[in-house]
């Protein structure tokens, strides 16, 4: 469990994180979303004690990260950018971290295997591709078998195999009862793995919602209806309470009625249907609506 209360961080005149409060619960993948510069990385750095907050505090498992006797076992973090000396091998790098906690070499071998790095474990990290570096970062995050896993943009630089690996890994970690916080600026990527979302913009929390709820909130679902009898169907659907637009003579876009209700209305009016396709709002649209809305309406949407 991660608890963040009124967390604030300024860099000179700019406020990177502005009174952010949220709780990340165990047993599910929480996506941490926002455009670049929204304060995601800074928030993560504050959770693991690398940046000192100007106000507010963050706790992990009920206590500040710095006070944990074995920090790597409390939180495993993959943060932005490389964090490896080019001259050391992957195994030496992990051993350097493991030894600070008395974590044995066999655990290092285990996380190397988990990250698919066994074959390159004794090669210098300076020659690693971006994807291999990311895998090494994930391996170091899992080194202490941590209860909380924080990954900042983990799919950056990964090939399709790697992306699939990360997705499966995140779900497995959550299924094991761990707290998983994953940042991304890509809604499409997050949609695949996350159960819950924290959306931030300009250092503030815009939404703390379940994925399903956000989709539902994104506005009414639409159905595309194609019918040679559109002339008759159109007024009937309006009478049933729908909002209807008619982009083409034989095509209707219906909002406010479920596909079943449209089908029933069509039968009642003896209208032939060529097509009846429900379109759910995508997470991407929901995200765009939310961030756009926040920009336009400011404080009002934050409270929503």
């Amino acid at each position: 469990m991660i608890e963040v209360r009124e967390l604030t961080k300024r860099f000179g005149a700019t406020i990177a994180v502005d009174g952010l409060s949220f709780t990340v619960r165990p047993g599910r993948v929480t996506g941490f979303l926002g455009p670049n510069g929204a304060g995601k990385s800074t928030t993560m750095r504050m959770i693991v004690g690398l940046d000192r907050p100007d106000a507010g505090d963050a706790t992990v498992g009920g206590r500040p990260y710095r006070t944990h006797p074995a920090p790597l076992c409390a939180v495993g973090a993959l943060l932005e950018g490389r964090a490896v000396h080019r001259g050391r091998t992957a195994r030496q790098h992990l051993l350097g971290l493991a030894r600070t906690h008395g974590i044995p070499a066999r655990r290092v071998a285990a996380v190397l295997a988990l990250a698919g790095l066994t074959e390159v474990a004794d090669r210098r990290a300076g020659g690693f591709s971006l994807g291999m570096s990311q895998r090494l970062g994930v391996a170091s995050a899992l080194l202490g078998d941590p209860a909380v896993v924080i990954l900042d943009e983990p799919v950056n630089g990964l090939d399709p195999d790697g992306v699939l690996w990360i997705r499966t890994l995140l779900k497995d970690l959550a299924a094991q009862g761990r707290t998983v916080l994953v940042s991304s600026h890509l809604m499409s990527e997050t949609a695949v793995t996350a159960d819950h979302l924290l959306i931030v913009g300009a250092g503030r929390l815009l939404a703390d919602v379940g994925v399903e709820e956000l989709i539902a909130r994104a506005g009414a679902n639409r159905c595309v209806v194609r019918s040679p009898d559109a002339d008759r169907l159109h007024p009937a659907l309006i009478a049933a309470g729908a909002t209807v637009t008619r982009p083409e003579p034989d095509s209707l876009v219906v909002e406010g009625l479920a596909a079943e209700e449209i089908g029933t209305a069509a039968a009642a009016n003896h209208a032939v249907l060529y097509e009846l396709t429900p379109h759910r709002a995508s997470l991407e649209q929901a995200y765009m609506d939310l961030t756009r809305g926040w920009v336009r309406f400011g404080e009002k949407k934050v409270a929503a």
């Binding site: 790597l72 490896v84 080019r86 790098h93 971290l97």
Partner: peptide
């Protein structure tokens, strides 16, 4: 190299 972040974590 940025290793200091891992070290301090």
């Amino acid at each position: 190299s940025g290793l200091i972040r891992a070290t301090f974590a």
